[in-house]
Amino acid sequence: MPYVSFQKDVKYRGKLHTLPEVKKSITQEWADAIIFAVVAATLIRWLIMEAYTIPTPSMENSLLVGDFLFVSKFHYGTRTTTTPLQVPLTHQKIWFTDLPSYVEWIKLPQYRLPGITHVKRNDVVVFNVPPRELNEYKDYPVDLKTNYIKRCVAIPGDTLRIIDRQVYINGKAEENPPLMQYSYLVVANNDISERILKKYKIYDYEIVGRPGDGVVYQMFLTEELAQELKKLNFVREVKIATHNGSEGFSTRTEKTVEPNIFPDSKTFPWNGDFFGPLVIPAKGMTIPINEKTLATYGSTIKLYDHNDDVKLDSGKLVIDGKEVTEYTFKQNYYFMMGDNRHNSLDSRYWGFVPEDHIVGKAFFIWLSIDRNADFIHKIRWSRFFRIIE
């Protein structure tokens, strides 16, 4: 039908009158349908749920590269945007271009609508990664910064410590994710066949040496899988090991210092396996200002705690031209880590996640595609509609 007619009777001066028909062309019908679909999708994406994909192995094996998941906005409460003039259904850029998807002619304050819960320890959370260097060195608005997904291991007010890879919160060992991975060195007699690697679903690996008649692999494995590989007759050794700069592959100790560790390797000689203790800032928490606290929290206060004019100089904190001797945090912060603990760029290396950077709670997987599999086995059917824990 090329036209749809609308007719309505109205009463005027005691008489019934028929209004003229309003006809819509097919083009108008399609335009209305598209506008309705875009508006509905935008509201659902903003208020309720948004689709994401896993591009990197930092959360393996809990989440796999190629997993497509829905992230709930209503759990923690959705945020209002700061840049309302934006192309619908885009993030930083217009599809397939390098053109910004937004303009800052109008900038609004950001608010969070009420949610049904708050971020808890062990929640898998999507957030806007704070550091500028992880956002193409661009000053994106908070809600348009690059999306990361990690597990929340510490919440506001917690004291975090990592001892020999084990996370401790407030002095108590935390339960580890069941599919948590680490970096292992696997020494085999010969090159391990593709058939064996596929059988054990080992895709994240590389050959790092060929000493004598052996082959040394770096693999990211769960502890259970590492124990299985030890039983293979052609495997000589399987041991935890991480890449430690110029020293090559070795096991981190308390004396190992990673130069890129948070907050500052000069003041805090830590590494990803031996870290802390570190107190996570909470809204309303007050700290004294000295060289150590500024080394720990100075960049957070300056960059993320909503202060306009902050200067850090020789153990002094100057805000709006006035030196302060103590500081009270204006919002909550969180500490995020990937389940692939030796292959994750997370809070151990760039710091706290501010509450206003939280996007939502990872909810469930709706599709999973194995890019390393053949066409018949491309889809991981067993992962469909799996709740993320």
Rank of each mutant, 00 (worst) to 15 (best):
M1Y: 10
Y3Q: 12
D9Y: 12
V10F: 09
R13F: 15
V22Q: 12
K23S: 15
S25Y: 03
E29S: 10
E29I: 12
D32M: 14
D32Q: 15
V39K: 12
T42K: 10
L47E: 15
T53H: 11
I54G: 02
M59F: 08
S62M: 13
L63K: 07
G66K: 02
L69T: 06
F70M: 13
G77W: 00
R79F: 15
L89H: 02
W95S: 12
F96G: 08
D98I: 01
P100L: 00
K107M: 13
L108T: 11
L108R: 10
Y111T: 10
V119M: 08
V124G: 00
V124P: 00
V125S: 06
V126Y: 01
N128L: 03
V129A: 05
R132Q: 13
E133V: 13
L134D: 05
Y137T: 11
V153G: 02
G157I: 11
T159I: 15
Y168L: 08
I169E: 04
N170F: 04
E174H: 14
E175R: 14
Y182T: 01
V187E: 09
E194Q: 15
R195P: 01
V208I: 13
G209S: 12
P211I: 01
G212R: 03
V215P: 03
E223M: 09
L229I: 07
L229S: 07
L232T: 04
N233A: 11
R236A: 13
V238H: 06
A241W: 00
S246N: 13
E247L: 11
F249W: 13
E254L: 10
K255R: 04
E258L: 13
P259Q: 13
P259L: 07
I261L: 05
S265C: 09
S265T: 05
K266N: 09
P269D: 03
W270A: 02
W270E: 04
G272W: 03
I280E: 02
G284N: 12
E291F: 04
T293Y: 00
T293S: 01
A295Q: 09
T296W: 05
Y297P: 09
S299T: 11
T300A: 14
D305R: 04
L317M: 01
V318Q: 09
K322F: 07
K322T: 12
E323N: 07
E323W: 03
E326C: 00
M336W: 05
G338Q: 05
S344P: 01
S344Q: 02
D346K: 04
W350C: 09
F352T: 06
F352W: 06
V353G: 08
D356E: 14
W366C: 08
I369W: 04
D370R: 07
D370F: 02
R371H: 09
F375L: 13
F375V: 10
F385T: 11
I387W: 15
